[in-house]
């Protein structure tokens, strides 16, 4: 891969990072929202670096470049080869370098693979993970380790909502409470959840699911609730459901699926951030 190709690859890669963050919200399909500013910064750096490399190369400057003025030229060859000057001396410098340092100015074939993310962004534009991931992951991750010393307070909308008022919870928060809240504070409270529909292959009803992400889609964890009292909507369509927790009998910890009794449900356009 020669230097022009390297420079252009960097420009395209930076453009991909910028396209998915600035004019669109595509990046939210892949990484946490907090990555946005860092992706923009990385994109700008790559575009600038790529342009500098291409400019330096088409001007026929090998490793000596237009930033010469930053430091005083210490070698006569540099001074004579300044941009428009005698290109002769410059070329010798470049080729002499190319011979002993080929490893350095040419990148290995594997660098072409940097075009794959570019291709992915511009051609495929991968959507957020959805029902396929939920179905192929099978059961939920299981309850978190039981911790007797845990502070019984939950920091979610339910603990703040006034009694009788509907609380809007993340599905993750709902599942967490359904598993470990021995006080059963959720019982008989009106709760609102938002997620996408996933058919239940093994039994009746369907799941309202949402993926929880710590950093990027590679670490996504499935959270889902079972709904049996409404007909299954179209797979991957997004819904906000209002209803109550179906309180299980016995030890909460042994529950494998959390059921939800719906009172009303309403289709929503995709929320801007598909993950919790």
């Amino acid at each position: 891969m020669n230097r022009i190709a390297q420079g252009l690859t960097l420009v395209l890669l930076g453009a991909a990072a910028l396209t998915s963050t600035v004019p669109t919200d595509l990046y939210l399909n892949w990484v946490k929202a907090g990555f946005g500013p860092f992706l923009i910064a990385a994109g700008v750096v790559m575009v600038v670096l790529g342009v500098l490399v291409v400019v330096a190369e088409v001007r026929g400057e090998g490793d000596t470049s237009k930033e010469e003025e930053v430091a005083p030229a210490t070698v006569a060859m540099d001074a004579s080869g300044r941009n428009t000057g005698e290109v002769h001396g410059h070329d010798e410098g470049h080729d002499g370098h190319g011979d002993d340092g080929h490893d350095h100015s040419r990148a290995p074939w594997v660098a072409w693979l940097l075009l794959l993310p570019v291709l992915a962004v511009f051609v495929v534009a991968p959507p957020a993970l959805g029902s396929y991931t939920v179905e192929s992951t099978g059961g939920s991750a299981g309850p978190p380790p039981r911790d007797e010393g845990r502070d019984s307070k939950f920091n979610d909308a339910l603990s703040e909502a006034a009694p009788g008022e509907a609380a809007r919870l993340d599905i993750q928060e709902f599942v967490m409470r359904a598993w470990i809240d021995d006080e059963r504070e959720m019982a008989d409270r009106e709760i609102e959840l938002t997620g996408f529909a996933v058919p239940n292959e093994e039994g009746e009803g369907w799941y309202l699911a949402r993926l929880q992400m710590a950093c990027c889609a590679a670490d996504a964890v499935v959270n889902k609730v079972l709904i049996t009292d409404e007909p299954a909507p179209e797979t991957d369509s997004w819904w906000t459901v209002r209803g109550t927790w179906v309180e299980p009998e016995g030890d909460l910890y042994d529950v494998s699926e959390h059921e939800f009794a719906t009172e009303e449900m309403e289709e929503v356009t995709d929320p801007p951030d598909p993950y919790e």
Binding site: W30, V31, F35, L39, P117, P126, C215, C216, A217, A218
Partner: peptide, 9 residues
């Protein structure tokens, strides 16, 4: 999606 996610992250 996962490939792009790992690359971008």
């Amino acid at each position: 999606t996962i490939f792009t996610a790992i690359s971008f992250q």
